[in-house]
Design a protein around this nucleic acid. Structure first.
Lengths: 399, 399
DNA sequence: AATCGATTGGAAACTAACTTAACAATCACG
DNA sequence: CGTGATTGTTAAGTTAGTTTCCAATCGATT
């Protein structure tokens, strides 16, 4: 549906050409290569119009002819497709122990992918590590840096555009320094977007995961840390200060209010529900060998009643968080991710607790995307942005 | 800015006429009566285009000439304005003790307003009361029922369009029965929209109150009950099941977990933070003469330390709710309303508590709208809807 | 092997919108 | 009473999109 926003500005005939080119590109992106006639049918535009628009798009290098399709009576149909080389997107993921990245063309095909372990404790070393990773990815894909039209970095913390700062970077020490932002900008240029890592994962979920066919959903990640990416009406919400989805700051100061300092830095809910908190709780309860959250869950699965109680308590906490999200925005779907979120049986435990708290029940599912989620989310965010820019540019320079 | 939505559909030349007529109407609505030339300057459209569009709008009855403006050199400029009589909007508010309503023309001018006390306990009696109120309002305004293009009812509870039912109607007994919905539809026709009462108040806040110049805000009402209306990007969010903003279901099962039954029906947070809960807490603490929340607040203001503690506790609860909202959607502004929300000094207490919980601080303000908030919110929602419909219709039938 | 029929894509003619430029009519003001 | 600013219309030209028609092509059927 075409939407006219509130304070709309006047429209010229050119606008409708822009819209229609956008529409055709969208169809090509979504449904793959197609002949003119099919595009006409799908879009509802007439054949001459489709021909003209494709001509314009071809002149600006955004689509190209990839072949002929025959087999049916009549002349061979000319098949168009998006020109993947019209631009490239670099997606990066900076974590505490890993740096990951990938390069994709505008069609979304990944041209190179890499992941390196990092022992960096210094923030600038991490910045350099990312730059090196990018160089490696470019070389592997055989692409020059200039061809990258969009770079997206998935990072812990939130970027607040109003004050141009990264904040709440939590476990990544020094990452909220302005020097980091400056260093990243210097190395990756003005095409750099910074996205919260869990928000990026939510975007991946929207494109490749369970979020594909819903309007609004919440991706809730429970593991080393706790966070959420919120997609409403198909769009990721950042909030005014960029902290939308920072559910680690939900005010549940349950029992173990030990680390007040920790609570301020990473959120009180994080302090009571992250993997470390599970381990703490298990130890306090006397679960033997509770050295990691994984082992606690394993013990519970084996039938250890005390460990099971810890797991139940954790499920209750997560259910409370989800219930809060429901009470505020009422999403259609909740996707669980992260080490704890994906633990076997955890979904059921959460749903059970949630059904006792919440006035309505959304779908709740576990993600089936893997470790590369953040990178692919960055890439899909970058692709969207890149396409928008390209069509805008094409509309202005073309014709 | 004109926005092309994600799954946009193809555009025809007619679309741009529609957009431009919409734009002209918006300017007239916002800036009042204007001559053609001014409209051309404001909208950026050329004079002939403005003339043509105004002609089309005039033919479909949406604008009309209201006079000539002279005083400057040159011929008298013909001044156009929105034709207020092109349609009327009926706004209604059903509460436990009051029925309120108003009729406004398309310019937003209120033509009649009324409010009646009701002793009805039966739901259908309330429905009839609303119908009678509407008749009275119509008579007073000298308008026939057919001229009302949009009726909006602000009601407790949420309307779930997926199952076509009213639910969570809380203190309004029997109001969630399907018969109520059927009865309302029969009396008010298909032009009826049902909006949660607090959501309607939020809409009023957006148009007439503090929400005027922000993109996103939360209107939090604390009084007999607790609720929130959430406006993101200028649009009210209902959520998938319609329960967005039902913060009474936030999972804070603080202390007084006495009424488990109550908690299920109206939400656990409601049970611990509504006016009744304040009275309960005050009595338990031994505040003398704690017969109403107002008196507890008055006692605290007089210096009663015990009452002050109860108020502080209440402020903490509300701050926790707001903190949850921030952690999920991070609005730019929070507007406090309701009996308790507007109590003197409460804002400061809440802000103080909130600053200790939340990672970022939004603006927090107390509403300055009065008792008619819900009705005027309904009217502004109805106006938006009515304008949308009218322009669509004009675009189709006109020209 | 020839014809039929479906399909493709483009050309021509027409409609819908907007813009610029020019112009006639009007009115305040010196 | 003339001058100059202002208003609003008309005319010509541009950008878009649609419908209609047609030539060219190719599989399938007789």
């Amino acid at each position: 549906m075409t939407v006219v926003a509130g304070g709309a500005s006047a429209a010229r005939p050119q606008l409708i050409r822009e819209i229609n080119e956008q529409v055709l590109l969208d169809h090509l992106r979504r449904s793959g290569p197609m002949a003119r006639t099919e595009l006409a049918r799908l879009s509802g535009l007439s054949k001459p119009t489709v021909s003209a628009a494709l001509g314009s798009l071809e002149r600006s290098g955004l689509v190209h002819v990839i072949g002929q399709r025959t087999g049916v009576p009549g002349p061979a149909a000319v098949v168009y497709d998006v020109r993947p080389e019209a631009g490239f997107v670099l997606g990066l993921d900076v974590g505490r122990e890993y740096l990951r990245g990938a390069i994709a063309d505008l069609a979304g095909t990944v041209r190179s992918r890499a992941s390196v372990r990092t022992k960096a404790v210094d923030a600038m070393t991490r910045v350099n590590g990312l730059a090196e990773l990018a160089v490696k990815l470019l070389a592997e894909a055989g692409i020059s840096a200039e061809e990258v039209t969009q770079t997206v970095l998935g990072s812990p913390g939130v970027y607040d555009p109003r004050v141009d700062r990264l904040t709440l970077t939590g476990r990544l020490s020094g990452w909220d320094s302005p020097a980091v932002l400056a260093g990243l900008r210097e190395r990756f240029g003005p095409g750099l977007m910074i996205e919260n890592d869990i928000d990026a994962a939510a975007l991946a979920e929207r494109v490749h995961g369970h979020g594909r066919d819903v309007e609004s959903f919440a991706f809730v990640s429970v593991g080393t840390g706790i966070g959420m990416g919120l997609v409403l009406d198909g769009k990721l919400r950042h909030g005014f200060h960029g902290v939308a989805g920072e559910i680690s700051y939900l005010p549940f100061t349950e029992g173990s209010g030990s680390d007040a300092r920790d609570a301020r830095r990473r959120g009180s809910f994080d302090a009571s529900a992250s993997a470390a908190a599970v381990v703490r709780a298990a130890r306090r309860a006397g679960v033997p060998g509770a050295s990691s959250a994984e082992k606690v869950f394993a013990a519970a699965a084996r039938g250890d009643a005390v460990a099971a109680a810890v797991v139940t308590e954790e499920a209750l906490l997560v259910a409370k968080a989800i219930c809060s999200v429901i009470a505020v925005v009422d999403p259609e779907l909740v996707v669980l991710g992260g080490g704890i979120g994906q633990a076997p049986g955890f979904l059921e435990a959460v749903v059970h607790q949630l059904s006792r708290l919440s006035p309505v029940m959304p779908e709740v599912r576990v993600t089936d995307l893997g470790a590369e989620t953040v990178v692919s989310g960055c890439i899909s965010a970058g692709l969207d942005r890149a396409w928008l820019n390209l069509v805008g540019r094409a509309g202005n320079s073309g014709s």
